[in-house]
Design a protein around this nucleic acid. Structure first.
Ligand code: MN
Ligand code: MN
Ligand code: ZN
Ligand code: ZN
Lengths: 141, 141
DNA sequence: TATTAAATAGGAATAGTTCTTATTTAAGAT
DNA sequence: ATCTTAAATAAGAACTATTCCTATTTAATA
């Protein structure tokens, strides 16, 4: 019962369970490629044809505030969202602007250890993410 | 003769030397905090009161194309620019949105070696940047 | 000094996002 | 089950960063 899963997630964050929020959660759960608000809308609209675009933005903002979703740093003019909260890094494709997840616990260990030794003066680190910039091999796109 | 320096930089990139471009270069050279187009305009306007904002954007775009300037990835709605081309990473302050440079050759070595061993399948790495997220100690702000 | 391709000024247009407000609704209380 | 009410939503206006358009100006070269 996956619909129920989203309801519980909302309750856990002390949010009222609405069809709009449930739909956005579902979209985020299914669109794994760091979607824009617009992509989320496209997905949500299939089952909720009357949802307002402002609601999508408002919902995403709420989710970010509650820590249910993260924004992804880009150098484009559009915001992208990430529902995966486990620590991971990102592959940025320069050609296609695709952003793919990169999980690597060994690397995380190395980074943590490195910055335990080497403190940055006047800066308290909360998180470290790698931007791995390059291109996907275009054998099959 | 620093004015001349900017002129040469432009010539090196096969760009016509104009007062507007020189001024934007000078602004980028002096504003070390990854300025927005608007901050650059504020700086440039002091000596070039008639410059058009569109010219600033166009100039920055040209510089990015020529590899004289990089965009900085953020999760804000405004673009920020970086005139430092030497390999470096960024400290992102969650509170103030300040972005500060972080140079660390030892860390670069570690990363390069790590990814020489551990290739990412189907992805050709061009560059790796760390997003070091946290807060600056607010002793003096 | 004349030529010309390129650059700029000025302002309109666009796009992503936020804001406003009347209406609707979820959730708790009765 | 119905009532109550604070919160959420729809619809569209407003806002803001950026891009686009084009008449005019200018840098570079001859
Ligand atoms: Mn940089
Ligand atoms: Mn925008
Ligand atoms: Zn991700
Ligand atoms: Zn920098």
């Amino acid at each position: 019962m996956t619909k129920e899963k989203y309801g519980n997630k909302l309750k856990d964050s002390n949010l009222k369970v609405t069809p709009q929020r449930t739909a956005v959660l579902e979209a985020l759960d299914n669109l794994k490629d760091h979607p824009t608000a617009d992509k989320i809308k496209e997905y949500v609209v299939k089952n909720n044809p009357n949802i307002a675009v402002g609601t999508i933005y408002k919902t995403l903002e709420t989710f970010v505030e509650k820590g249910m979703v993260n924004r992804v740093k880009t150098e484009e003019g559009v915001m992208r969202y990430d529902a995966i909260l486990d620590r991971h890094h990102h592959l940025y494709c320069e050609e296609t602007k695709r952003i793919e997840d990169f999980f690597d616990d060994e690397l995380n260990e190395i980074l943590i250890k490195y910055f335990e030794k080497k403190k940055i003066s006047n800066f308290a680190i909360k998180d470290i993410k790698l931007q791995i910039i390059g291109t996907f091999d275009s054998k099959k796109n």
